[in-house]
Simulated scan of single mutants.
Amino acid sequence: MIIQAIRSALFYVLFIGQTFVVAVVIGTLALVAGRTRIGWELAKYWCRSNLVLLRAVAGVRTQVSGLENIPPGGCIIAAKHQSDWDVFAIFPHAVRPAYIVKKELMRIPFFGWAARSLDCIEVDRRKGAHAIPEMMRQAHAAVERGCRIVIFPEGTRKAPLAPADYKYGIARLYGELKVPVVPVALNSGLFWGRNSAVIWPGLAQAQFLPPIEAGLAPDIFLERLKSAIETTSDALILGAVENGLSRPLDGRLSAAISSRRQAPKTAA
């Protein structure tokens, strides 16, 4: 525990330091020249180097599968969100991603300038449904620039096996853009959880699932999306547990694991 806490602290120092430097460089470039190829390459470097640091310093390995499920052309990538790892893992594979992020992040000097130059779409969650029209305008503009929209449908990081809470904004976005949606399941929260001081070694996995075709009724689409992401995320988490975890399990997670293991037997 103590050794892993030290490894985690070292990672955070390197991660935060590198993030600051990269944000300043990309943000300055954005102020001077707007969107540039250099900015994109630096962003890719940031993501890949963070994954390298996670493995080398904290012991978190990365596995991304199902890339063949990403269709050519415009689409929405809708991912489970359990960790900052999710951003690093998805970014390099989305070609030109446009992440939907909360407005507060876009107001941070340098970081916000950099995010805007990387096609990020801001949403003011305090406005609720009133924020949707502006988000749609930005999303349409991003698709026209050749971006793939990346959204975390629950709006925030969730603990592994916590009750799902999908917002209706993803259904509105799906209906508005009329493009396929690629669900992404993952188990990263087992190793680098929300507000976790300690990062635990292990294999963090993300799986791109078969796309959901455009044109479905909103409620049907949302149910299919939730079912795909939650079922596969649960399977990835339970698989990691079966293979053995180095982290301790708290009461909530232990109970959730036990509940998921019993669910198929109950259903039968």
Score class of each variant (00 low, 15 high):
193 G>E: 05
198 V>C: 06
131 A>W: 04
155 G>I: 07
231 T>L: 10
238 L>C: 10
139 A>R: 01
155 G>A: 08
136 M>V: 08
234 D>T: 15
140 H>K: 15
125 R>Y: 01
228 A>Y: 04
209 L>K: 07
207 Q>H: 13
173 L>V: 00
172 R>W: 12
181 V>T: 14
235 A>G: 05
212 I>Q: 02
129 A>L: 11
168 Y>C: 14
155 G>H: 08
134 E>C: 06
209 L>C: 10
144 E>P: 10
120 C>W: 07
234 D>L: 07
221 F>H: 09
118 L>Q: 14
152 F>M: 11
217 A>Q: 13
128 G>W: 01
180 P>Y: 08
167 K>G: 03
212 I>Y: 02
147 C>L: 02
144 E>M: 01
208 F>Q: 01
135 M>C: 03
154 E>V: 07
208 F>P: 01
123 V>D: 11
145 R>G: 01
239 G>A: 11
133 P>R: 09
159 A>D: 15
213 E>D: 09
146 G>I: 04
164 A>P: 03
196 S>Y: 05
176 E>F: 10
203 L>M: 14
159 A>L: 14
222 L>M: 15
140 H>T: 15
183 P>V: 10
122 E>C: 04
213 E>P: 00
210 P>R: 00
237 I>E: 13
145 R>H: 11
174 Y>I: 06
224 R>W: 05
154 E>I: 11
168 Y>V: 15
229 I>R: 05
120 C>H: 13
195 N>E: 15
164 A>G: 06
142 A>L: 05
134 E>P: 02
163 P>H: 02
131 A>K: 04
187 N>I: 01
198 V>L: 06
203 L>C: 04
233 S>I: 12
188 S>K: 06
182 V>S: 02
162 A>H: 02
133 P>H: 09
171 A>T: 04
235 A>H: 12
130 H>R: 14
234 D>C: 14
131 A>N: 00
138 Q>R: 13
185 A>Q: 02
117 S>G: 06
171 A>D: 04
